[in-house]
Simulated assay, not measured.
Amino acid sequence: MDKKRIRLPQIKRQKDLPLVLNKKEVRELLKAPKYLKHRLILAMLYGCGLRSYELCNLLQADIDFDRKTVFVKKQKGKVDRYLPLSPHLARGLKTYFRTENPVKYVFNSQVTKDGEAGPLTTRGIQWVIKECRSKVNTQKKFTAHTLRHSYATHLLEDGMNIMSLKELLGHAHIETTIVYLQVSNMGSSMKFSPLDTLFTP
């Protein structure tokens, strides 16, 4: 008896899709902090799609108000990139720099070593998020990185093409960016339920 072996294709493990806040939830989150510094921390994470460690290492010299850009230096094998600076962020940052006088970095840590101002820490960002969670009308358990996911998804939904988004996010491979096509609700890929058309003539 000739036994034929059947080889099934290997199934790649499905990656979890990212959690995304809707625009109403983002607006509530950005209004939640009492202090301008904390509002700007959240606004930079969402408005520039920054990773937490990128925000911590951001220097004041990296902000160009005339060119309306934010320069993100390459780290962890990533690439240098320029990000657009929203006029809303520019106004807030100018006020913050004028009133708070941060040293060297865009955001300084509250804890300093030997009296020297150090950069904001990822733990400091986590604290801001934790303080604001209860002020947002949502059941979603969001983190700082959720704001980066929301940035990417909202840009796609607003009409940005996938290659431009890849550059803004600083992804080395397009496959990493494509996951946001599965999350976004836009254009020809807009998803809907058959119930939406069931009762229409």
Rank of each mutant, 00 (worst) to 15 (best):
V106H: 02
F97K: 05
V128H: 08
L19M: 14
M186K: 15
F199T: 11
E28K: 05
R67K: 15
R7M: 12
Y151D: 06
K15G: 05
R81D: 04
L147K: 05
G92Q: 06
D196Y: 11
E100M: 07
L40N: 05
I11Y: 13
G187Q: 00
I178D: 03
V111W: 10
M44R: 03
T112I: 10
I125Q: 09
R91H: 10
T112M: 13
P18V: 04
T122N: 15
V183G: 06
K4M: 09
D114H: 12
L8Q: 13
Q139A: 08
K191S: 07
D62M: 05
K191W: 08
N108P: 13
H154L: 09
G124A: 14
K12C: 04
R39D: 06
L40M: 04
L89W: 03
K37S: 11
M186F: 12
K23A: 10
A61H: 09
S52T: 11
E157Q: 12
Q14E: 10
P33L: 02
F142K: 14
H173V: 02
A61P: 03
L83E: 08
D2K: 14
L17W: 07
L195W: 01
H145I: 05
K74Y: 10
Y180V: 01
G115L: 06
Q110S: 00
M44N: 03
I11C: 10
D114A: 11
K37D: 08
T143Q: 13
I174W: 02
I162N: 05
Q110C: 03
Y96L: 05
L36T: 12
P87H: 04
Q60I: 14
G124Y: 15
L59Q: 04
L8P: 06
R123Y: 01
K3E: 14
V136F: 06
C48P: 09
L93M: 10
V179D: 06
L155I: 00
D66V: 09
R67S: 13
M190F: 08
R81W: 11
V183T: 09
P201H: 08
P119Q: 13
L165D: 04
L156W: 02
R123T: 06
Y96V: 08
R133H: 07
L29G: 14
E131T: 14
Q75A: 14
K76A: 02
K78F: 01
S184P: 07
